[in-house]
């Protein structure tokens, strides 16, 4: 690419920036806040319930997360989550219900290509990276902690 062409591209990208409508940042952030906040409030309700029957905090956490994941899957199946996300944005995406939605949405979509190579293979198309990088970064930080505290062996 010569310089004139590069300049033209830079200039055009500036034009595009000016022509593109800005997102309604305040409204979007407020909607995300409310949506995410409400989902976490439901989570708190479940947590308080599970706390009664579960012996430890880690187990209560695990069961609460799993229950919210189940809720997210059902809401996706009923076609409600798509609607919620269009309005709540990241408020619907960031809670674990949103993580569950990525798995269910992919499973529903790719079922048409069969249960093995469609649904089975592509279920984690978006959730996969979340697990991969969650585990990789968790592994590295845990390893560091173990080495520094001498508890590795």
């Amino acid at each position: 690419m010569d310089k004139a062409q590069k300049d033209q591209h830079t200039r055009y990208q500036q034009m595009v920036k000016e022509a593109t409508p800005q997102p309604n940042r305040w409204k979007n952030a407020a909607m995300a806040f409310i949506t995410g906040g409400l989902i976490c409030t439901i989570g708190q309700l479940l947590y308080n319930l599970f706390e009664i029957i579960e012996p430890s905090r880690l187990e209560t956490t695990a069961v609460t997360q799993a229950a919210m994941i189940a809720l997210g899957a059902v809401a996706t199946g009923l076609g409600f989550y798509d609607w919620l996300a269009e309005r709540g944005g990241m408020g619907a995406a960031v809670p674990v219900t949103g993580f569950s939605n990525t798995i269910t949405a992919a499973a529903m979509e790719f079922k048409r290509e069969g249960y093995i190579l469609g649904m089975g293979a592509k279920m984690f198309v978006i959730a996969g990276p979340v697990l991969v990088y969650g585990i990789l970064s968790g592994f590295v930080i845990s390893l560091l902690r173990a080495v520094l505290s001498g508890s590795l062996f």
């Binding site: 799993a66 994941i69 899957a73 199946g77 569950s100 798995i103 269910t104 499973a107 649904m119 279920m123």
Partner: peptide, 10 residues
């Protein structure tokens, strides 16, 4: 849970 419910919904 995500795998079981996701598959069920699908």
């Amino acid at each position: 849970t995500a795998i079981v419910f996701g598959s069920l919904m699908a």
